[in-house]
């Protein structure tokens, strides 16, 4: 029973990371109908930037984190303005290939700048807590707490803030939003910025429990599976999908190690086969 709880909490904390990244996917998808295959690599870049600020330049942790988020948000907006915007209206595979290419570049660039040797960030949160006989690293509890707070903030943002509502409007009908005076282009860049910042946060949260290396970018694929399981286009679905993926992983590793690498993808394929639109379907039929 204890082992079960232990695995569950590890899974939930891991799932929060995937959920955050999946949230980034979904936000960009809703706003632009584009899939950002470079999302995982943006997370990876975020953790490297945090490493540079905190470990290399010696900026205090609590200053380094918001600085990283701002840097990565500007980076996300720049990616949209300089590159991604040019392919809007082109067929979907063009966009898929474009973001795949971006991912390759980010990973290669990270390898060239920071090297292939794994790095670590000294986190102010360390140690572990024990309750009911299970022992959990504090950094895992922090992940869960931060994710919960972030979700609450995002929910309030999309519900009450002017910008959040504008983003929602733009994602539902760009032309209508444009005619109502919403600066759609700016909004889309803002969505990229927010998505990049959220991934960077995921990267910082992940840093204490794994090492920082360029290949972390490939974690984005798992987050992608999470987004698909949750149903692309649904923000609560993204978090739930992330949790499902996160929880499957430690249990598979503990009980059926042979399939630990592929189980989540098998689950994802089953979900897709049974419900091609994902668990939280948002079905949009093309207007004829």
């Amino acid at each position: 029973m204890n082992e079960f709880l232990q695995l569950l909490i590890v899974g939930i904390s891991q799932g929060c990371i995937y959920g955050l990244m999946a949230l980034g996917f979904v936000m960009i998808y809703k706003a632009t109908e584009m899939i950002n295959f470079a999302q995982g690599d943006m997370m990876m870049l975020g953790s490297f930037v945090a490493w540079t600020l905190i470990m290399d330049l010696g900026i205090p942790f609590w200053l380094g984190v918001p600085a990283t988020l701002i840097i990565m948000a500007s980076f996300g907006a720049l990616v949209d303005i300089l590159i991604v915007r040019r392919v809007i209206g082109q067929p979907q595979f063009a966009v898929i290939i474009l973001t795949l290419g971006l991912g390759i570049i980010f990973r290669a660039a990270a390898g060239m700048i920071w090297g292939q040797v794994p790095l670590t960030i000294d986190s102010p949160i360390s140690g572990s807590s024990s309750f009911y006989g299970i022992v959990i690293g504090n950094e895992r509890l922090v992940i869960i707490a931060v994710t919960a707070v972030l979700i609450a903030i995002l929910w309030a943002y999309f519900r009450y803030s002017k910008w959040g509502i504008a983003m929602k409007a733009a994602s539902q009908n760009q032309l209508a939003a444009y005619y109502s005076g919403i600066p759609v282009r700016v909004i889309i860049s803002a969505v990229w910025a927010v998505a990049a910042a959220i991934s960077a946060l995921a990267g910082i949260l992940l840093a204490p429990i794994t090492l920082i290396e360029p290949m972390n970018g490939l974690l984005g694929i798992k987050a992608f599976a999470a987004a698909v399981i949750g149903g692309f286009g649904s923000m609560p679905g993204a978090i739930l999908g992330g949790l499902i993926v996160g929880i499957i992983e430690p249990f598979a590793a503990a009980y059926v190690p042979a399939v630990k690498g592929s189980l989540i993808y098998v689950v994802m394929l089953i979900v897709l086969a049974l419900r091609p639109q994902g668990l939280f379907a948002q079905i949009h039929k093309k207007k004829l």
Binding site: I83, L98, G101, I104, R107, A108, M112, Q116, P214
Partner: peptide
């Protein structure tokens, strides 16, 4: 000698093609 120069070049070419000559 930089590690990853190969995928970097590939990535840049890929993006240039998609953007400039689809």
């Amino acid at each position: 000698g930089l590690p990853g120069i190969e995928p970097f070049v590939f990535g840049v070419i890929l993006i240039s093609v998609i953007v400039f000559e689809p």
